[in-house]
């Protein structure tokens, strides 16, 4: 009450009253918000709309036949295989890396942390080329692999390798700060109570990081399915054999088959939307969890 009274006496119009010390005047606020909305519309919502309208431009039957086509089905299958191998591998690597970096101090720790970020800082095309130079016919291990009739490049193993490499940091990056923040005390407590290393991990560490882990898995999976650059270099674009969804889309597009290209693209777009939804749900759930605990903590 007292506040209102003072302000009236000052004769300041209500609109000029800042809600908080850090807020700006109305026209600046609307300018900033407007810019953000226009940016989102042009760079996010319009492309998304274009994907779906182009996909359905020649009718629903064309849309579904593009998805049912054998090459498209093969691409979808390969994408699922690559993600299905890369994500579990990175789950294990990510937990192991976060465990080592978050819980222990050792020589070369910051170097290891930098290494984990390497796939983020290297262009995916370069990542792909590395594998070609190592496993390719002219590469380091090429002759040996050829002699033993093992195909890595222009085959599924190469695609899986490239995908795993490019998506490696997602889970580790998500978990390291979380594990670091939680410290060692609960694990130490578990050990003094007689728990084995595995029991400590499974019953104490894992439950504490599960939301961060799930979040990392969702991001990792989205990137694994959408990866283009590295996979493009190692795949060789053999239709029905080594094409993933992004590569299949590119080929269709280059052949001026716009409706089918966008039809397959819409699947990836749907995946992105589903990922966003899942990510938001996980964030909401973990925040809710934290809030609940905090509130109950205050009540006690």
């Amino acid at each position: 009450m007292a506040t209102t009274f003072t302000i009236r006496n000052l004769g300041l119009p209500v609109s000029r009253r800042a809600a908080a010390a850090t807020s700006e005047q109305a026209w600046i606020r609307w300018l900033l918000i407007g810019t953000a909305v226009v940016f989102l519309a042009v760079f996010l919502f319009m492309p998304l709309a274009v994907v779906f309208t182009s996909a359905l431009a020649k009718g629903v039957s064309v849309y579904f036949s593009a998805l049912r086509e054998p090459d498209a089905l093969a691409a979808i299958r390969l994408t699922l295989i690559a993600a299905g191998i890369a994500v579990p591998l990175n789950l294990v690597f990510g937990i192991a890396a976060a465990w080592a970096i978050g819980k222990f101090d050792f020589f070369g720790k910051s170097f290891l942390t930098t290494l984990i970020d390497l796939p983020f800082s290297v262009s995916p095309v370069v990542s792909g080329l590395i594998y070609v130079l190592i496993f390719g016919l002219q590469g380091l291990l090429g002759p040996w692999l050829a002699a033993h009739d093992i195909k890595v490049i222009f085959a599924v193993p190469g695609i899986v390798l490239a995908t795993t490499f490019v998506t490696f940091p997602f889970i580790a990056r998500e978990l390291i700060p979380l594990v670091e923040a939680q410290g060692n005390e609960e694990e130490e407590a578990a050990l003094t109570l007689g728990a084995s290393g595995w029991q400590t991990f499974y019953r104490v560490t894992l439950p504490n990081i599960k939301w961060g882990l799930l979040y990392g898995v969702i991001l990792c999976n989205a990137r694994a399915m959408g990866e283009f650059g590295a996979v493009s270099v190692v795949s060789g674009h053999i239709r029905g054999r080594t094409n993933t969804m992004p590569l299949h889309i590119e080929i269709l597009y280059n052949e001026y088959q716009f409706a089918p290209a966008f039809a397959v693209a819409s699947l990836l777009a749907l995946l992105a939307l589903a990922t966003l939804f899942a990510k938001t749900a996980v964030e909401w759930k973990s925040r809710q969890h934290a809030k609940e605990l905090a509130r109950m903590g205050e009540a006690a």
């Binding site: 005390e185 609960e186 130490e188 407590a189 578990a190 019953r203």
Partner: peptide
């Protein structure tokens, strides 16, 4: 432990 270290 000083900060209890209960399993949260």
């Amino acid at each position: 432990f000083q900060h209890y270290a209960l399993f949260r």
